[in-house]
Computed example of a mutant assay.
Amino acid sequence: MNRFLNSASPRRSRSTASVRRGAAAVEFAVCLPVLVLLVFGAIEGASFIFLKQSLNVAAYEGCREAIRNSAATAEATSRADAILVARNVNDATVRFIPADVTTVSRGEKIILEITAPTRTNSPLAGQFINNRDLVSRVVMVKE
């Protein structure tokens, strides 16, 4: 009698184990695309945050250069461009308002706007997402 009971148990456990393995494979197949999408989305989101911060830093440093008494527009632009190049920002445009900072009197505002597209600065899926232009704007008073 014991012999028959022992022989039936392994068959049930083998059958149950294969069902469990099959269920795990199905769960993996369903969850994997979601996990991959979350990981790539997190990478894209982090790269856009880095891009925005890079624009902020470049705008701040460029405007800081422009508000100095002896500053020229070319020097301030090259300061902002150097930061953008160091941070691998592509296709950025630097624009001062007014266009020539040497004409601004002491106590007046100088505005620096830096714009960069997200498509050319995306590490993974730039061609799959809609292009947006990120803008950083800094306003400072001339010394």
Rank of each mutant, 00 (worst) to 15 (best):
Ala59His: 06
Ser78His: 06
Ile97Val: 14
Gly126Phe: 00
Pro123Cys: 00
Met1Lys: 09
Ser13Phe: 14
Ile67Thr: 05
Ala66His: 04
Val19Leu: 14
Val94Tyr: 12
Val26Arg: 14
Ile43His: 08
Arg12Tyr: 08
Pro117Val: 04
Ser47Val: 15
Asn2Lys: 14
Ala76Arg: 00
Ile129Gln: 08
Ala82Glu: 11
Leu38Asn: 09
Gly45Thr: 14
Val39Asn: 07
Ala25Asp: 08
Ile67Tyr: 07
Ile114Gln: 03
Thr103Ser: 11
Ile114Val: 06
Gly45Ser: 12
Thr120Lys: 08
Ile129Arg: 14
Ser78Thr: 12
Ala80His: 01
Ala125Gln: 04
Asn69Met: 06
Val135Trp: 01
Ala58Gly: 04
Ala116Ser: 07
Arg11Thr: 07
Glu44Ala: 07
Ala24Lys: 11
Thr120Ser: 13
Leu37Gly: 14
Thr115Trp: 08
Thr118Tyr: 11
Ser54Met: 04
Ala125Gly: 02
Asn2Phe: 10
Glu61Gly: 10
Ser105Gln: 11
Ile114Met: 02
Asn130Val: 01
Ser13Leu: 15
Arg95Trp: 05
Ser18Cys: 13
Ile83Thr: 03
Ser9Phe: 15
Gly41Met: 09
Ala71Glu: 01
Ser9Gly: 01
Ala74Asn: 10
Asp133Arg: 02
Pro117Ile: 02
Arg95Glu: 14
Asn88Ser: 15
Val26Leu: 11
Gly107Phe: 01
Ala72Pro: 02
Ala29Asn: 15
Ala29Phe: 14
Ile114Pro: 05
Arg68Pro: 01
Val104Tyr: 01
Pro33Arg: 14
Phe40Glu: 07
Ser15Gln: 11
Cys31Trp: 13
Arg68Cys: 12
Gly41Tyr: 11
Arg119Ile: 01
Ile97Thr: 15
Glu75Gly: 09
Val30Gly: 10
Val141Ile: 15
Asn69Trp: 02
Arg119His: 00
Pro123Val: 04
Leu35Ile: 15
Ser7Tyr: 12
Val19Tyr: 13
Ile110Met: 10
Glu27Asp: 13
Thr93Ser: 13
Glu44Met: 11
Ala24Tyr: 01
Val141Met: 11
Gly62Pro: 05
Val138Arg: 02
Ile67Leu: 11
Arg87His: 14
Asp133Lys: 05
Ile110Pro: 12
Arg87Met: 13
Ala74His: 06
Ala24Phe: 04
Ser15Lys: 06
Ala86Lys: 08
Glu113Trp: 06
Ile111Glu: 10
Thr115Gly: 00
Glu143Arg: 06
Arg11Glu: 01
Ala76Phe: 03
Ala80Ser: 04
Ile97Gly: 09
Arg87Leu: 10
Ala46Ile: 05
Ala76His: 03
Ile43Ala: 12
